[in-house]
Structures are given as C-alpha cells and as structure tokens.
Design a protein around this nucleic acid. Structure first.
Length: 237
DNA sequence: GCGACAG
DNA sequence: ATCTTGTCGC
C-alpha cells in the first residue's frame, strides 16, 4: 500500500470514529499493546491483560512475523496493526479497553494508531505516548495526576499527564469510544511506580523479551509465537 | 524552501 | 524503534 492510499484509508475510517461524553464505565481488566522490532523488519506484538484493581498481569499473548509497512510518521498504524490484531485475536476474551503505545486523536488527521485499531475492532481504545508529536502544551504541575491540554490549532487533541510526581509527563489521547477525561484518569490510575502505565509497560517488556528469545533461538523454534498465560519455564531472564 | 516528525 | 556505559539518586 502506498502512503497516499494509506492516508485515504485513514480519512475514510475516520468517519466511523465515535467519542462519547465522559463517564466511561471502567472495566475489571484492560489490555496493553506494544510492538518491538529487529533492526531488519521482524516484529513481535504483545497484548497484556491487566487487572485494574491490582495492576497485575492476568493474561499475556504475542504474535510475531515480518513487517512489510515501513515506519512513516502519521502512518504508524499501518506498520503495527497487522501483528497487533493477530495478538489480540489470541486473547481468551474480547478486550473491554485497548491501550496503545502511541496516539489516537492527537494526530495530523486526527486518526492515530489508537483510533485506527479501535475503529477496526469497534472496541474502546486510547493512546499513551512517551514523546510529543502533535500539539503544544503548558507546563504540567509537579504532583502525580496533574495534566495540561495538548492543543493543535483550535482543538484540544490530548493531554500531557504526570503519572508520577517529579517525572516527565506522558501524552494521552482518546482513540475510540472513550472521552479524554476518562483516558486521563485511567492513565494515572493504571500507573504503579513507573512513568509508563502498567498495561503499555508490561506489553513493552513482554514484546522485548519475546524478540530476544526469538533471536537467541536462531529464529526457528518460536516462529509461531502467541503463547498464552505465563512465560514458559526455561526462558532465560 | 526548511525543519520536524508517535514507534 | 534501535544503536549503547556509566552514573546519579531513592
């Protein structure tokens, strides 16, 4: 698919995007997503189910394979969604809320990865990014839970949110079927003692570990990925 | 035209 | 994203 076609797809899918008023009913569990790559084009996607009350990992699956779409700012979804969908399909239940490593509405065309994935699956989704992309924001107060609007043009597209006192904020934006206010409170509520909230953090850890396993195994024995539950015994640490 | 640019 | 060592601090 060419970049021009990908942009057309985004503008088309965007008509299906739904952002409700605040008041999202927080589910018992949420799903964190991330993809890690090799210097070449091999990727491992991870989907980790996190218990909202305890922040514990209750299920973890992966999917891996060659990735064809290159990284292009604004078109990240086309690179990551194939493996992410495959990983999500391996979960034992349909997710109630997806949390992506990246942006949703805070995107040049208001349709980043979190919006794209949310619309395709018609599941609530939002994004948590580690670095700025679209929009400007005022300095965020120091205490955990403080935030400042991300403003692009005349729109509020997301928020810079302090998940830990004295630590750089993360960037939160709504993806699909959830309001920014709810994304903001969830980002803080889902954060343990780290800057990155547990869902995305655990997905990052798992995808990196699986990629390392894949490489040390010579890339032959684990080609089918997607093991459910806890990591198998024998895995190096 | 030039620089910036999620992961 | 990935390439990479030590170092400061709780």
């Amino acid at each position: 698919m060419l970049p021009d076609e990908a942009v057309a797809v985004q503008e088309s899918l965007r008509t299906r995007l739904v952002i409700p008023p605040p008041g999202f009913a927080v589910p018992p569990t949420v799903v964190g997503l991330d993809v890690t790559y090799t210097e070449s084009s091999f990727g491992v996607a991870a989907a980790v189910v996190i218990d909202v009350a305890t922040l514990a990992v209750v299920e973890a699956v992966t999917a891996q394979g060659e990735v064809s779409f290159p990284y292009v700012p604004g078109l990240l979804a086309f690179r990551e969604i194939p493996l992410l969908r495959e990983a999500i399909s391996r979960l034992s239940a349909t997710p109630a809320l997806l949390i992506c490593d990246g942006y949703g509405l805070a995107h040049p065309r208001r349709f980043g990865l979190a919006s794209h994935l949310g619309v395709l699956l018609d599941v609530p989704a939002f994004g948590i990014a580690k670095t700025p992309y679209v929009g400007a924001w005022a300095p965020v107060d120091e205490p955990r839970g403080s935030w400042s609007d991300l403003v692009d043009g005349d729109e509020i597209v997301g928020r810079a949110v302090r998940t830990q006192t004295g630590v750089k904020p993360v960037f939160v934006s709504a993806g699909h079927r959830i309001a920014l206010d709810d994304c903001t409170s969830l980002a803080v509520r889902l954060s343990g003692r780290y800057r990155i909230p547990e869902p995305t953090r655990q997905a990052d850890i798992l995808s990196r570990r699986r990629l390392a396993d894949h490489l040390s195994a010579g890339g032959a024995e684990w080609q089918h990925g997607g093991h459910g539950g806890q990591p198998a015994a024998g895995g190096s640490r």
